[in-house]
């Protein structure tokens, strides 16, 4: 398995306040790494550090090269980021937003779109089912449609790794399922990997292949999902018996089924 992303001793601090403290992990092809932890654990900060936003210390390498040595467009061809929320200012069409995903593949300032561009866009549209709203203004879309639009942009961008920051946090259940199914479908192609920050531990277990558990900025454990999210560790980090809670929640539905 080739390593797409490697993070060593990542530290992010604002003044005296250390948000992320010497966290290390790596992401390899075929892997879906779930970054989990309670509120304030530093999950989103890790995403913004590796996607180039927040200033940080430590070593982040992408395909064996230092993150900072990448030109923005070269980085975008390897790694794509989906934000939690989108607040578009103008009435762009779904098409215009999705087409922006091809930016990192363009050849010149005034170069038109290539057949490769069109093929990538068609694949992205087909996957996300945006055809019916292709010409619609993004200002008129529901939260789920908007998230699918930006997911299609990401698919059109065609990076090797997706970085997702709580992609379904504010979405209805149907959209949650839709988005996670889309991503696992995308992951089936060889050489791809996904890193996502999730709040919902069930989602982490259901879709993740590995996990990174954080507590107040520190890494508590990483590795295969089932090992990392063990009963003991979760109880320690969340200060409650998470397993018992999940079972109780599930039992609500089993009663319904047995009736």
């Amino acid at each position: 398995m080739s390593e797409l992303l490697s993070v060593r001793d990542l530290t992010v601090s604002y003044g005296d306040l250390t948000i992320v403290d010497r966290v290390s992990f790596s992401l390899s092809a075929g892997e879906w790494l779930m970054v989990v932890g309670p509120n304030g654990a530093g999950k989103s900060t890790i995403v913004s550090a590796i996607s180039g936003g927040a200033p940080h210390r430590g070593r982040v390498s992408v395909l064996g090269r230092s993150l900072t040595s990448y030109k923005p467009s070269a980085l975008a061809r390897v790694m794509g980021v989906l934000a939690q929320r989108h607040n578009v200012g103008y009435a762009f069409t779904v098409e215009e937003v999705v087409r922006l995903g091809r930016y990192c593949h363009r050849r010149g300032v005034f170069a038109g779109s290539t057949s490769q561009d069109e093929a990538a866009i068609e694949r992205a549209v087909a996957m996300t089912g945006l055809e019916p709203i292709w010409r619609q203004s993004v200002l008129t879309l529901s939260g789920g449609e908007l998230q699918r639009t930006f997911l299609a942009q990401l698919f059109a961008q065609d990076p090797q790794a997706l970085i997702l920051d709580e992609p379904t946090n504010h979405l209805d259940l149907a959209y949650q399922e839709q988005v996670f199914d889309l991503i696992s479908q995308w992951l089936k192609e060889p050489g791809r990997a996904v890193l996502s920050v999730v709040h919902d531990l069930s989602l982490a277990r259901a879709y993740g292949s590995s996990a990174l558990l954080l507590d107040r900025g520190r890494s508590v454990g990483s590795g295969p999902v089932s090992d990392t999210l063990s009963r003991q560790r979760l109880s320690q980090v969340y200060e409650m018996d998470v397993y018992a809670w999940m079972e109780r929640m599930l039992s609500q539905w089993q009663e319904v089924v047995t009736l």
């Binding site: 180039g52 934000a83 922006l100 930016y103 990192c104 930006f150 961008q157």
Partner: peptide
């Protein structure tokens, strides 16, 4: 166009 969609989005598509 990307900036008008959002500066974060502009950064993420490789600008």
């Amino acid at each position: 166009n990307a900036f008008a969609v959002g500066e974060d989005n502009a950064r993420q598509v490789g600008i």
